[in-house]
């Protein structure tokens, strides 16, 4: 009898904890990487972005000499790392990568539009889109004014 009560209590507590765990776990522990769809999702987003860029008259010229396979691989790595995924970005610093172009804000805006379109095409939820953009925007200054950073950090 006593055992039965105990068992019930333990089971009850277990159930409560289990349910609570279910309720909390995904939102607390899912990384942005997961919410972007993991490796599959990030890869799809980057491929969609390349597709958008291919049709972007304003930007396509910048990529004329680019090794697109390298760009694709490095960007996938970078988005993975930035979104707390299990990757290490192995590409050039943002300053070095963009040091040979003269970019203005309309180019930056245009790229953001393409990235948003790429995420939309992959049904990335708005919250995850905003989170990713918020993590990329701090790189703005280094992308736009690479010379400022290269003189300081030529070791890269």
């Amino acid at each position: 009898m006593r055992n039965r009560v105990l068992i019930n209590r333990v089971a009850g507590c277990g159930l409560v904890l289990f349910l609570a765990g279910c309720a909390l776990k995904p939102s607390q522990q899912a990384t942005l990487y997961d919410r972007l769809g993991g490796n599959e999702g990030v890869t799809a987003i980057v491929d969609n972005l390349l597709y958008e860029l291919a049709g972007n008259e304003k930007l396509i010229g910048f990529f004329e000499e680019t090794d697109i396979n390298r760009f694709r691989t490095k960007l996938i790595e970078q988005l993975c790392e930035v979104s707390d995924g299990p990757c290490r970005y192995s590409g050039d610093s943002m300053a070095k990568a963009h040091s040979n172009m003269t970019l203005n804000r309309s180019h930056f805006d245009s790229l953001v539009n393409d990235l948003i379109a790429a995420m939309d095409a992959n049904d990335t939820p708005v919250a995850a889109q905003n989170d990713l953009l918020a993590r990329l925007v701090p790189m703005y200054d280094e992308v736009m004014h690479p010379q400022k950073y290269l003189s300081d950090a030529d070791q890269y």
């Binding site: 905003n130 953009l133 918020a134």
Partner: peptide, 9 residues
């Protein structure tokens, strides 16, 4: 502000 309030801008 991106991703600022309830994950909205």
């Amino acid at each position: 502000w991106l991703h600022a309030l309830a994950e909205r801008n």
